[in-house]
Every structure is written in structure tokens, then in C-alpha cells.
Nucleic acid binder design. Structure first.
Length: 451
RNA sequence: GCGCUCGUAGCUCAGCUGGAUAGAGCACUCGCCUUCUAAGCGAGCGGUCUCAGGUUCGAAUCCUGACGGGCGUACCA
């Protein structure tokens, strides 16, 4: 199966809006793979379009080796746009470069490749910090389908699906007010065309029997049409499962789309750095760690908190972005789970000798914990069937809560605990720790032996 | 206008596809560290599940309508 997620635009820096697709998609890909599916990750990056003419013209001006100028893509884009608006000659050159680029001009292609490479490098930096398992091998850029677009339109025509309307090639779907446009009146193709080419490639070349698109809910209409057309055209087979794994938007406290104070977008890398700083402050006040240790723990705790805050919410709902909540360490948070894990590791460190023997359940806390442990597999299948990552977080939180109660009521290493009970409780603790570790692992969140 | 989606405690959210007195966290009030990590645990406070009908033995959950929020509505992605 194919999971299509993240899909950043190469012209812009990744901002908080890209967070959800990246981590929801990654979690689902991890989950499907864990359950035994053959998963092909696809990062359908946006690397084509008119703005690239402007960007490569500006890159050329700045000197293409000038890495400094590209270190902040957001600023680079703004500067390029400023040049474009202010300087007519530059604007003309930008338009000329778009045409040359699309015509395969070597010089422009070289500039463009350089630009994409740098931009993708920024994304990879974010993926690495986020613990998202996307590599260059998963990248299948929009532009890579360019040569197939004409063939897509021809194939639709052969099927008798096309109608010329106002000069544009359209597929009219029954019951839809608007058609699915695959070729503009000026002859240009659209992302709808590219998406069709991508489906055909995924089904017929990659052999996908299920394709999950992790894209925000605003594009629901597009995907509904895309899937219908893909089936009618035979790009997808009748039994190919196509699904739009939609998710809601990030809103601010007053319920409007989330922006910074000055109306800009919050860069993802800044959010992550902020989270690590916050985690560092919280950790420092608690215990003495070496600088190295502090850095490592803050990274795992801080990034985990951000990811968990997002993944623990039903993906369909719009959610309110709140620094305090996102960086919170109380209640249903990643730290609670990491804390439970660390407590167990502490017990295991103190215990000397082997752990063996049967698990015997005699008390209510033991039974409740064991019962929850047994529900893991069922939960994972439900999460996969519905593509809902928050089932995992809810489960882990419930598990950790039950462990905390067990921990409070059920001594393990105390002198007055008999050996049979001790072994049983150790086994329960180990199973709990392993379940938390694996569960958080699916979310791409790490655990710590000490906290 | 039409379409999609959401409306559950003061706030942020769950609610396993129709089952028993609707659950958490935060906030607020109390209590628990000489014994395995108090970033924890226990107790309390707090909801006519937006409203009105309907289906059902049974509805937060399904259907219809109203009200309210968000999003989308052909040649951007």
C-alpha cells in the first residue's frame, strides 16, 4: 500500500500547517508496516509551478553557491517576491525562466535542481528532528510526472470522458456542480492531472492496492472527484482502496486559522526549537544532568510533547494551537507515558537476578492492567482500519494510568513481597514498558531510561 | 445558494460504530513523600451531550429540520 504524506512545497519553508500531514502520515505508515503491510511512503513534493521561475532567477542573482541566502526560505521567497514586484526587468526574466525551465533549458534546469536540493535539505532537517521516516527515496516530485500528463489527457479522451468547456478539457461527474479540469484553456496542466498520473503510477507500477492521502480536509472535494475519475479511467482498479485521510486545521485561540502575531506562518523548525527549550527548562529545575544528557533528554521530551499533542486529537477536528497545552507535561501527554516507562526502568535497574515465572493476577489493579495489555492488538487493528492515530495515544494513556495505579498499590521490590508475586509484577511491568515503548515508537516518539 | 464538517463540564478534548449511573486533563477545594521516581496517586466540585422532532426495548451516537462555528465551491496547489 501507498501512504502519501507531508508533501511540502519546495518554494516555501515548512510551517506548522505541515506538521499534521507529516506526523499523522508517518504514524500510519509505521502502523501499517508494523501490522505486516508492505508500505511504500510517497512524498509528493511541490517542485513545479510558475513561482519557480522567479525563485531561480533570484537564486542566480544571489549566486547559486550562496548557501546563506537559502538558509531561510521564507525570507528568500519574500525577497524574490519583492524584486519581482519592484523590478520590471526581473519580473520579465522570471517569466522567461519559467518558459525556459519547462522547455528543458539546461541552465535553468541546473538552477532549479540546485534550489530543490537545498529546499529539500531543509525539509530533511525537520524530518530528522521530528523523527519522521521520510528519505530522498520516498520523494516522488510533482515534476517527475510531467512527461506523462499529455498521455493522461489522451487516455481520458480515449475513454470518452473528456468534454471541452470554455476551452478547458474537463471531466463532468454526475451530480457535481463543477467539472474536474485536467487541462487549462491555455494548454497547461493542473495538479489534478498530476494526481491522476500519480495514481496510475502507484497502482500499475508500484502495485498499490490501497492508497492513503494524508491531506487536510479542505481538499475533500478534490479527492472525491480525483478518485471517481481515476476509477472511470481505469487508472485505479475497481478494488483499489483510495482514501483521503483528512485532518482539520490548526486554529488560534479565537478560532481563526493559526498565524503569528504579524500574520505570518509559524515555522515548524521554530516550534520544535521552542519545544526543546521549554523542555530543557522544565528538566533543569528537577535534576542535575550533564549538558550532554540534558540536550538529549530535552530533545526527546520536547519534540515528543509537540507530536503527542497533535496526534492525540481526533484528526478530523480542527484544533486550537496552544503553546501551553502543546508543551504541557501534565495529564494525557507524552511525558506521562515517558515517566511511566522511566519508573519501570528504575525498578528493573534495582532488581537483581532474572525475571521468570507465570503472571498471576490476584488484585484489581493487576487485573485491570493485564486486561488493558491484552487489548493492544485489537486497538492497533482498529487504528489501522480507520486510520486514526489517536486511538494509539488514548490506549497508551489508559495503559499508563492503570500502571500508575498498579504502581501505587502494588509493591514489587519491597522485602515483604513474596517471590511469586514479585516475579508476576515484574513481568507485568516489563510488558507495560515494552508496550509503551513500541506504541510511542509507532508515533515516532522516544522513551528514556531515566527521567 | 449548494456541498462537506463540527457543536459533549468554565477551558481543551475522549467516548471502541446503538447499550447500563456520559469519561479524562486543565482550572478550583481537600488529602498522600522515613519504604520501588510526588512530572505521581486518592477524594471532591462541575454536563437537560446546541435546540426541536423522529426511528428503537434502548440515542451523545442513526434520520429530518432549525440555530451556531469552520471549510469548500471550474481553468492555484
Amino acid at each position: 500500500m501507498v501512504v502519501d504524506y507531508s508533501s511540502p512545497n519546495m518554494a516555501k519553508q515548512m510551517h506548522v500547517g505541515h506538521l499534521r500531514s507529516s506526523i499523522i502520515g508517518d504514524t500510519l505508515a509505521n502502523l501499517f508496516a508494523f501490522l505486516g503491510d508492505e508500505v511504500i511512503r510517497q512524498n509528493h513534493i511541490g517542485d513545479w509551478g510558475t513561482q519557480f521561475g522567479m525563485l531561480i532567477a533570484y537564486l542566480e542573482e544571489m549566486g547559486e553557491d550562496g548557501r546563506g541566502s537559502l538558509s531561510d526560505l521564507e525570507q528568500f521567497y519574500k525577497d524574490a517576491k519583492g524584486r519581482f514586484d519592484a523590478d520590471k526587468a526581473f519580473a520579465d526574466k522570471s517569466r522567461e525562466y519559467v518558459v525556459k525551465l519547462q522547455g528543458g533549458d539546461v541552465h535553468c534546469l541546473h538552477l532549479w535542481e540546485n534550489f530543490i536540493d537545498k529546499s529539500l535539505g531543509h525539509c530533511e532537517e525537520v524530518y530528522s528532528k521530528l523523527g519522521v521516516n521520510l528519505t530522498r527515496e520516498d520523494v516522488r516530485a510533482e515534476s517527475s510526472y510531467n512527461d506523462e500528463l499529455a498521455g493522461i489527457v489522451t487516455a481520458l479522451d480515449d475513454k470518452g470522458l473528456l468534454t471541452l468547456s470554455d476551452g478547458a478539457q474537463c471531466v463532468f461527474l454526475e451530480g457535481d456542480e463543477h467539472p474536474f479540469i485536467v487541462q487549462k484553456s491555455d494548454g497547461g496542466y493542473l495538479y489534478a492531472t498530476t494526481d491522476l498520473a500519480a495514481i496510475r503510477h502507484r497502482v500499475h507500477t508500484l502495485g498499490a492496492d490501497r492508497i492513503s492521502y494524508v491531506v487536510d480536509a479542505r481538499q475533500a472535494g478534490h479527492f472525491r472527484q480525483l478518485f471517481a475519475v481515476a476509477r472511470q479511467a481505469g487508472f485505479a482498479k475497481p478494488d483499489t482502496r483510495l482514501e483521503h485521510v483528512s485532518f482539520g486545521m490548526m486554529l488560534d485561540k479565537s478560532g481563526r486559522p493559526f498565524k503569528t502575531r504579524d500574520g505570518g506562518t509559524v515555522k515548524l523548525i521554530d516550534l520544535l526549537e521552542e519545544a526543546v527549550i521549554h523542555a530543557k527548562e522544565a528538566i533543569t529545575s528537577r535534576e542535575d544532568y550533564s549538558d550532554e544528557e540534558l540536550e538529549r533528554i530535552a530533545e526527546i521530551v520536547g519534540i515528543g510533547a509537540v507530536k503527542y499533542a497533535d496526534l492525540s486529537i481526533h484528526r478530523d477536528s480542527n484544533y486550537i494551537f496552544d503553546w501551553d497545552k502543546m508543551l504541557s507535561f501534565e495529564g494525557n501527554t507524552s511525558l506521562y507515558l515517558q515517566y511511566a516507562y522511566a519508573r519501570i526502568q528504575s525498578i528493573l535497574r534495582r532488581h537483581e537476578g532474572e525475571v521468570s515465572g507465570a503472571i498471576t493476577l490476584t488484585t484489581d489493579p493487576e487485573r485491570a492492567l493485564a486486561l488493558k495489555l491484552l487489548q493492544l492488538e485489537d486497538m492497533l487493528h482498529r487504528a489501522a482500519a480507520e486510520s486514526l492515530p489517536h486511538y494509539i495515544t488514548t490506549y497508551l494513556y489508559e495503559l499508563a494510568t492503570l500502571f500508575m495505579k498498579f504502581y501505587e498499590t502494588s509493591p514489587i521490590l519491597k522485602d515483604d513481597v513474596d517471590e511469586t508475586t514479585r516475579q508476576s509484577r515484574l513481568q507485568l511491568s516489563i510488558l507495560t514498558a515494552e508496550t509503551i515503548r513500541q506504541g510511542l515508537g509507532l508515533l515516532g516518539i522516544g522513551v528514556l531510561d531515566r527521567l
